[in-house]
Amino acid sequence: MTALLAVSGIRKVFGGLTALDGVSFSLAAGQILGLVGPNGSGKSTLLNVLSGIYTPEAGEVHLAGQSLRGRAPHQIATAGLARSFQNQQLFAGLSVVENVLVGRACRLRAGVLASIFATPRFRREEAAARQQAEDLLALVGLGWAVGASVQRLSYGQRRLLEIARALASDPKVLLLDEPCAGLSQSEANDLAHVITRLKVNGLAVIVIEHNMRFVMGLVDRIVALNFGQKIGEGTPAEIRANPAVVAAYLGGSGHAAH
């Protein structure tokens, strides 16, 4: 099997703290990988390394056979890796649909002059991007909010908007950092449904989530982290039976399992 995303030996150090220590795993197209671990185990740091916000001290990330070493975040996004954030980062001064259109930025080609003179090519490109953005909003259940301002959305709806924005670049891999935080159980179910549909089309997903019902029902495989190290990998059932993972969650560190 050639992996769509291959992560090998990632090491990330902040001052004296080793946040990630030799983390490796791989992911095939159409697979959903859950990333679990106690708070501070390095999950979000790993996503930040994958999306290029942090540069790792060691290790390699390959996306569809290409090394992502030394690439800026926007180049990684262009290569096909999109993400949502744990603390929402929407563009407050843009409308809902414009937020999604920013997610499409790396696929748009019209130059400044074409935009100013509204050439047919510019208009075609804009119309197609807008149509795609509206389709994505409909997919996540925000079809009603196209022209609204971001402030009119609830906390949970903003999460869904972030996911629509991430999907706008036609990514090969989607990283979701706690997508269910702030969602009601029915919204979480809807989101799981959306992700399953995308998976059928070949999208690979890495999801950090504390909502175990959501994780266990959705993912194909789980990678468990603790203190920056991979302590387990396997199917949800295997992870639940893994003594190291159980100890990490229930052990003396004071972190409770959800």
Partner: peptide, 17 residues
């Protein structure tokens, strides 16, 4: 406007900031 509202988010969204 995306850079103004969130530079990191814009960059991660694929904007060459």
């Amino acid at each position: 406007k995306a850079i103004r509202d969130g530079e990191t988010a814009a960059e991660v969204c694929g904007v060459d900031t």
